[in-house]
Design a protein around this nucleic acid. Structure first.
Length: 698
DNA sequence: GAGCACTGC
């Protein structure tokens, strides 16, 4: 159990009169083999619930141990002490849940253990799914190194755009999405004798789908008397009961190597979490050695930039008063790669780093030097509303699991401290786990993928079933696009072609329809851009300048043609990186779009779509967009406001649109997001007469 | 007048 010390008022929160109560949390040192685990797990276990994957820098337990060989290092990992019992359990059970703490080495070691024990048979493959590309790639490279083989031979990986595997590959790391793709052509996943679903606690849409798909494959192989499929579900949370129940399987616990993290809660409830976090940061700054860096979790770009300005001001006032120098780094995904890397660099001696981050810092990356974490207990969360098609983005309280994840960020490299700017009572009221994403997103794409595998989404046995509304809307959407028909829904030829594309089905429809409007090339470009991240950079300080510079790409037809213009210029630019910098564009995201476009072009060829280009007749492109996004129209009202045609919902043109401030009669939008207002984004002007023409054909 | 984080042969 966690050691609850007496309240310690040393950590008073300046200005607000409240203080932190203190209690230490010790890492669990139990290794238990148990079928009813939840009682054994209390808070302290979760101080170490974050992953050991996600980038080479996270494998510090493997590196730089002078004079210890790689093999000796491996044998020091906690998982090794347990290898015999682990193998025994895996042999005895067709499905096993493994709860492994950070640093237990489960992700890298268990596949190797299984292979060397002959568990994969003579030729079967061990597949390990990861939620993120970077993790799949970096872990595979690491394991290949441990096996002393080049990546792609015995050990390989498969992620979007990159298949580094060969017929010799026996250990294969892949993203969840890739595994689903494989299931679409082989429902029993016959290449694999063992499948490991890693990071299952993250509950990504892909893992949630795979939980059901792999379990079904396992049963089908049984029925068809094929070689058995072993399933291992690896997770890092308390929420084990759910997994053991769903799979009717036992769970095994692995000790981790997390350092001790001391916990502090505020004694009084705080009404301004940003302010509380900053006050806390400067208290730490005045009291701690310079080499101890600080990480604050906040919710978004705007909030972080404002906090950074405030923090820099205070730091300036403290300059020359005998404190270490303090450098402030914002960190969120909309920053350029270069700016993000700044936050990861170790701070020079005598200088302290203060990182203000969104939950990028929660999962994907480890920031070196962090010894104190300040958790505000809030996060921005997106929820999809199925009947209106509306996405809602709002600030929510984190779950307990997320709070522990953040806490663990302080104990990656050494013992650390975590300051929560909320009370213990408030913490107790947090929900245990975040709502799984599958219950918060549009299901049209998933429904199509499942149908290709041979599964009807309306009867699919989800671990957490999405709302009926969401399922029905997804099927209705596919029907409207012509991808399915009948009840139970059957795949049409069009639907099968659509499933080839890794896109929202409405986007795929745009691509398929574009051939009739002679603009396949343009549709591929615009859809590639829409399916990736935002390519526009808007540094707060230079917003006006950014807008002015980029205005040369603007089209009075709307944002889609504007995107097309940017892309056409980008591919022609010789010095792409500096060109992006000059034009306030996001190099990484544009490169990604180029990759997606290349992939989509290849798929279009595979689908035998006739290539075409409308050149400068971009009206064709807008007509093609209308065919996939015909539900997404907004109409100007007499009072100069807009109403979404299908839902009759009042909407506002987002200020980022080139059509902002212009009042076209009818616009098509790509998505609609509710923040302070209900904003429609990525727009094109639509000629109302196009709608009538379309209905004549129907 | 303003955009949490991931991801897909």
């Amino acid at each position: 159990m966690g050691v609850h010390d007496n309240a310690d008022s040393k950590y008073s929160l300046m200005g607000s009169g409240s203080s932190f109560s203190k209690f230490a949390v010790k890492r669990s040192n139990v290794v238990v083999l148990n079928d009813s685990p939840s009682k054994l797990l209390k808070h302290e276990d979760q101080t170490s619930t974050q992953r050991e994957q996600g980038g080479a820098q996270q494998h510090s337990e493997f590196t730089d141990k002078i004079s210890i060989s790689l093999q000796q290092q491996r044998k020091q990992l906690p998982v090794y002490k347990l290898s015999k019992r682990l193998l025994e359990e895996i042999r005895r059970n067709n499905t096993l849940i493994i709860i492994g703490e950070t640093g237990s080495g489960k992700t890298t070691q268990i596949p190797q253990l299984l292979l060397s024990a002959g568990m994969a048979g003579s030729s079967g493959c061990i597949g390990i799914t990861q939620p993120r590309r970077v993790a799949a790639v970096s872990i595979a490279r690491r394991v290949a190194q441990e096996q002393n083989v080049p990546p792609g031979k015995l050990v390989g990986y498969c992620v979007r755009f990159e298949d580094v595997t060969s017929p010799q590959t026996r250990i294969k790391y892949l993203t969840g999405g890739m595994m689903i793709r494989e299931a679409m052509t082989d429902e029993v996943l016959s290449d694999y004798s063992i499948i490991i679903l890693d990071e299952a606690h993250e509950r990504s849409v892909q893992t949630d789908v795979l939980l059901g798909v792999t379990r079904r494959a396992q049963k089908l192989r049984n029925i068809k008397s094929l070689s058995p499929l072993k399933l291992i579900v690896m997770s890092a949370t308390i929420d084990v009961d759910k997994f053991t129940k769903y799979f009717q399987a036992p769970a095994i616990y692995l000790e981790g190597r997390q350092h001790m993290v001391k916990m502090y809660h505020t004694k009084k409830s705080q009404n301004d979490y940003t302010f509380s976090a900053l006050v806390t940061a400067f208290q730490i700054h005045r009291e701690s050695p310079a080499n101890e860096d600080i990480l604050i979790f906040l919710t978004g770009q705007e909030e972080i930039e404002a906090a950074a300005v405030a923090a820099r001001q205070v730091a300036k006032q403290l300059d020359g008063k005998g404190y270490p120098q303090l450098k402030v780094f914002p960190l969120y995904s909309a920053l350029s790669t270069h700016q993000q890397l700044e936050a990861f660099k170790p701070s020079p001696p005598g200088m302290r780093k203060l990182v203000l981050a969104t939950n990028v810092a929660e999962t994907s990356v480890t920031i070196s030097g962090i010894r104190s974490v300040i958790d505000t207990g809030v996060v921005k969360e997106k929820t999809h509303h199925p009947t209106t098609g509306l996405d809602i983005l709002r600030i929510e309280k984190v779950s307990k699991a997320q709070a522990w994840q953040r806490t663990g960020r302080a104990g990656r490299e050494a013992s650390g401290k975590c300051y929560r700017t909320y009370t213990l009572e408030e913490f107790e009221k947090f929900k245990e786990m975040p709502i799984p994403e599958i219950q918060r997103c549009s299901l049209a794409g998933i429904a199509l993928q499942l149908l290709v595998i041979g599964i009807d989404i309306t009867t699919f046995d989800f671990m957490d079933k999405p709302p009926d509304d969401a399922i029905n809307t997804a099927v209705a959407c596919l029907e409207k696009l012509g991808a399915v028909k009948g009840s139970p829904p059957q795949l049409t030829a069009l639907g099968r072609t659509m499933s080839l594309f890794p896109l929202d089905p409405r986007f795929t429809k745009v691509i398929l329809a574009s051939t009739e409007h002679n603009c396949l090339e343009e549709a591929l470009i615009v859809i590639a851009l829409l399916s990736g991240e935002n390519i526009f950079l808007d540094p707060v300080a230079k917003r006006q300048q950014a807008m002015a510079v980029r205005s040369r790409f603007s089209s009075d037809e709307g944002d889609h043609v504007t995107l097309l213009n940017v892309y056409r210029h980008y591919v022609k630019a010789t010095q792409k990186k500096s060109w992006c910098q000059e034009n306030f564009l996001h190099f990484r995201n544009l490169e990604y779009a180029v990759n997606v476009k290349r992939q989509l072009t290849a798929l279009a060829e595979k689908a035998k779509l006739e290539s075409s280009s409308c050149e400068n007749n971009t009206e064709n492109l807008r007509r093609a967009l209308l065919e996939g996004l015909s539900e997404n129209l907004a109409e100007l009202q007499r009072d100069q406001t807009y109403v979404a045609v299908t839902s009759r919902h009042p909407v506002t043109i987002h200020p980022s649109s080139v059509l902002h401030g212009i009042k076209p009669q009818l616009v098509l939008f790509t998505d609609v997001i509710l923040t302070n207002r209900c904003y429609i984004r990525s727009l094109s002007i639509i000629d109302p007469t196009w709608l009538h023409k379309k209905s004549e054909f129907d």
